[in-house]
Amino acid sequence: MRIQFELNGQPVEIDQPPMARLVDVLRIELGLTGTKEGCGEGECGACTVLMNGEAVNSCLLPICQVQGASITTIEGLGQMADHPMQKSFLEHGAVQCGFCTPGLILSSTAFLKENPNPTRAEIRRALAGNLCRCTGYQKIINAVYDEAFAKGEEK
């Protein structure tokens, strides 16, 4: 079926079977490999993308549901590592093997939009759908918390 949606701010039109998974369309058809597949069952969150600003597991999303939606992948966040959340992850040492990183950065970004002044406990809850096996989450939570705080100061 013909699917039209917005991808990283650009209109996209593709022909796909309705049940094709968004993660495959992004990675294989569109070459956006920043979105990772870690489990294929919606547990690890490595495939997280933003759909209309909300974090979703792209391995669970059939492409037919993306019709008319706006999708943001890690590639849409900033290719120069200059997005504030990307910078905060780098400064805090919140990146190790990096496989979970795109998903965590997207989840964190969506969360702070919704809740600009979170507590650490709220950050923990917001990121519980994104598994990281390397960091123990401490530096990730610090990165998100400090980014929220920095943003708060700018306002």
């Binding site: 990675r27 992948t73 890690i74 590639e75 590592a81 992850f89 780098l90 990146v95 795109p102």
Partner: peptide
């Protein structure tokens, strides 16, 4: 001293190529 890892920028932008990402 604390310093930022060199592969960090590629990893936070999704440009780092793991095996399945290599065309």
């Amino acid at each position: 001293q604390d310093f930022q890892r060199l592969d960090g920028p590629a990893k936070v932008t999704g440009q780092a190529r793991y095996l399945d990402d290599i065309p």
